[in-house]
Write a protein that binds this DNA or RNA. Structure first.
Lengths: 242, 242
DNA sequence: CAAATAGTGTCTGTTAGACACTATATG
DNA sequence: CATATAGTGTCTAACAGACACTATTTG
């Protein structure tokens, strides 16, 4: 059997033109909110060289196991957090011949949101994953173009704060309006008029009042709300000012 | 030399885990506007079976030639239209184990806009590419999930008509405001108040007045404008009504 | 002149910004 | 009671919708 024939046999097993395919991974920029700060999940990646670098959460596609790209993203996320993210949307697909020293490589990058409380217990057990704030990200030497992917995801989430309440998914299922406003103010790096914020959310009918109140510390207790299903995709016709 | 060794040799040439990679293509939903209608570019694709099916414009990545995904998209577009699209942005990456009968496959899908006049001469020479309107798309038997990709792209462009003037890139470099309004009305399937439309564009300072007028047919000639650079990314704080 | 198309004046309605106010908790 | 935090009343400003108006062309 000639080399060429064996090559062809291998190709046929695949039914794919093997020699023109770049490396692919499915990665997710996971955000949460804790102690008035936006946090990003970084995990340890073992490189070919044996060195360990921090990067965002992700990895390859298991052709037998993952039925689509989102399923692959979720599998990687659950391996670190045990639970599915509250919100997960595709961010951007980056692919070029310079981002990975091994050659042409592609990442299908997702943006994920999860409540800090929903996964911190499991994360505490792992030493290969941690939540870090954005100033710290700037100081880490991250894998490939992961710092840029985080910046892009952060920008997408900031813009969403202007015309939706999707950032609410970084909070637990039940949350208060002042908490949600804090998240938006953190993303926009700007104070928002309390009245404007509450008015537009009430008018759009996005929250379900649980009837319960949160009574901790000083002051009047705040009502606890949870998101109605339409909150996931609702967009206001008029944005908040930047 | 054993089969296994040869396999390894092939793998080493690639420096990639070949056997866990899905098929990849980079495709573009190209839109233009002609005779009061939105048109999509479809091209003939030769399938493994020898059958020919229509599909959107695209194909594989040439690892040696294409430096990134956008360059790959542009190479495929230029092969059919000779010129680069006026506007090109990434739409969505679809990947699963059912869209292509050959197995796991991924398309990195772009949304492209071009003026009809800018490429029709070259297209007329080709029999393997044509502009079709959207009702016709419904009747064609398109490759894989290409009909869905077209629907997604069309929806993205419709939403852009609500908060930007990006749809202007389906028009020639110099165009009139009534023409641009027609494009938006076509996308939104709804008439827009002439005054509202003009006022918001003027206020946002998105167009450059060429000083020239278009005088064809009856009526007062309309001023010819071209897009200022900021028109590519500008978003209005307040949307048009849906 | 009439018909056709381009472009404006101006009123109304909706909703975000500003900010002072009231309400309800703790100690 | 004072202090702290939650939540409201209400005025203003910005801007899209509605629609009647004027402007400029052809025949």
């Amino acid at each position: 059997m000639h080399t060429k024939q064996i090559e062809e046999k291998i190709l046929n097993q695949q039914h794919l033109p093997v020699f023109s395919l770049p490396l692919i991974s499915v990665d997710t920029v996971m955000f949460t909110y804790y102690q008035q700060q936006l946090k990003v999940l970084v995990v340890k990646h073992l490189q070919d060289s044996g060195k360990i670098k921090w990067g965002i959460l992700g990895g390859g596609i298991e052709l037998q196991q993952d039925h689509d790209l989102k399923a692959a993203a979720q599998r990687h996320i659950q391996s670190k957090t045990t639970i599915a993210p509250a919100y997960l949307e595709q961010l951007y697909t980056q692919g070029n011949d310079t981002r990975d020293a091994r050659g042409w490589s592609i990442t299908v990058c997702y943006l994920g949101l999860i409540a800090y409380q929903d996964c911190i217990y499991h994360l505490d057990q792992h030493e290969d994953a941690m939540w870090v704030d954005l100033p710290t990200i700037e100081q880490l030497d991250l894998l490939h173009d992961h710092r840029q992917l985080i910046a892009d995801a952060r920008e997408r989430l900031r813009r969403k704060a202007l015309y939706s309440i999707v950032p609410a998914y970084v909070l637990p299922e039940y949350f208060t309006l002042p908490e949600l406003q804090q998240v938006h103010e953190c993303l926009l790096a700007k104070t928002i008029q309390k009245k404007s914020f509450r008015r537009r959310i009430e008018l759009a009918d996005l929250l379900e009042d649980s009837g319960k109140k949160r009574s901790e510390g000083y002051g009047r207790p705040a009502s606890l709300y949870c998101l109605k299903p339409q909150a996931r995709t609702y967009t206001f016709v008029r944005n908040l000012e930047e």
